[in-house]
């Protein structure tokens, strides 16, 4: 799963400021030269404050997305249509937890604590991918998520394996290896429905209709409204722009939909011979920003479920801590 770098207002930089005069210009120049030479920056290396802040925001948003991403799928574990599908879904949800943990660890190397990040997620201060604030109504939604949402995630994440911050890049290498299973199991589940009874086929088309546009929104605002993009590209935190990645995703996914016999829910979709890619319809950015602001159809349910899971399982964390305290006392005695 993936989130792009989300700001609350279109066209307005969040908290990334250009490098201020307070920072030693020789250090900045040396840093920029290293990044430009495709060197990796490691935790204890000197880095501009804005670089650190941008990374903390992007990596923690990414981590939160993995964690929240477990919720819509977790809902379907008990209702998976077969034991095979259930085992697969369990493994996928466990992977999402793992991805969240790799990323939290990477963000922690920048000097932010796990506790602060979890707190920011639960208080609503931190953002996560808008995609998870849409409901999963039928089993076909789970198939569509694997195929489209994880497909978009892969598109976003592959270039991040070469991101300039070492711990982030290494986390992305692990994640990308595992993500491919997520997408393939989704497409396979979708094939089964698309080749099934007329009712199953309808279900597949219905899920596709609902997930197509939100998947395109996963790449974030259009380049002209993505104020942090230029800086992030320069620092190689990002390697391709939102629109470039979105175009790639459309070009790859449309033939996959055709193979399934599904119709892309976009009357303006058309192959453009000159650019060697598809032209597609206007994305409803008002909807995107509304979901970013927390007005997604199930935003509240997601956070409630997340907080409940955290609180109702607090006893496990407390018991583990108490056990360790007791052990230490025994050793001391």
């Amino acid at each position: 799963m993936y989130t792009t770098d989300l700001t609350k207002q279109p066209g307005k930089p969040d908290n990334v400021k250009p490098i201020g005069p307070a920072e030693d210009s020789a250090l900045v120049a040396a840093f920029e030269a290293r990044v430009a030479a495709d060197e990796f920056i490691e935790p204890k290396d000197w880095m501009p404050e804005a670089y650190r802040r941008t990374l903390v925001r992007q990596i923690s948003q990414h981590a939160h997305s993995e964690i929240v991403g477990m919720l819509p799928e977790g809902n379907w574990i008990t209702r998976a249509p077969s034991l095979r599908r259930k085992a697969i879904l369990l493994a996928k949800v466990q992977d999402e937890a793992g991805h969240g943990l790799y990323l939290y660890c990477a963000a922690e190397t920048l000097g932010t604590s796990r506790e602060e990040m979890i707190e920011a997620l639960h208080s609503g201060k931190a953002k996560y991918s808008t995609i998870f604030n849409y409901p999963t109504l039928t089993w076909a939604d789970i198939a569509a998520i694997g195929w489209l949402v994880d497909g978009a995630a892969i598109m976003n994440q592959v270039p991040l394996q070469r991101t300039s911050y070492g711990p982030y890049a290494r986390a992305m290498v692990r994640i990308c290896k595992e993500e491919s299973f997520h997408q393939r199991q989704g497409y396979e589940a979708m094939m089964e429905l698309a080749n099934g009874t007329p009712e199953q086929k309808r279900m597949a088309q219905d899920a596709f209709n609902r997930w197509w546009w939100p998947s395109l929104m996963m790449f974030g605002p259009p380049d002209e409204n993505s104020p942090n993009t230029a800086q992030s590209l320069r620092w190689r935190i990002k390697r391709e722009t939102n629109d470039e990645l979105r175009q790639k995703f459309v070009d790859i996914t449309v033939p996959q939909a055709e193979y399934l016999g599904l119709t892309v829910p976009d009357p303006d979709l058309k192959w453009n011979e000159d650019k060697g890619g598809y032209d597609f319809g206007e994305i409803d950015w008002d909807e995107f920003y509304a979901v970013v602001r927390g007005e997604g159809p199930v935003a509240r349910e997601r956070m409630t479920a997340r907080r409940e899971a955290w609180e109702s399982n607090a006893w496990v964390r407390e018991a583990a801590a108490a056990h360790e305290a007791k052990r230490r006392e025994r050793v001391a005695a």
């Binding site: 793992g98 943990l101 660890c105 583990a320 801590a321």
Partner: peptide, 24 residues
């Protein structure tokens, strides 16, 4: 080195490491 985990003690650190870094 593959990454890190939070855990209250060594035994749980090993279990978390197993679940987080060796699922495959």
């Amino acid at each position: 080195h593959v990454g890190s985990v939070h855990a209250p003690d060594a035994e749980l650190a090993l279990r978390h490491a197993r679940d987080t870094y060796t699922r495959r």
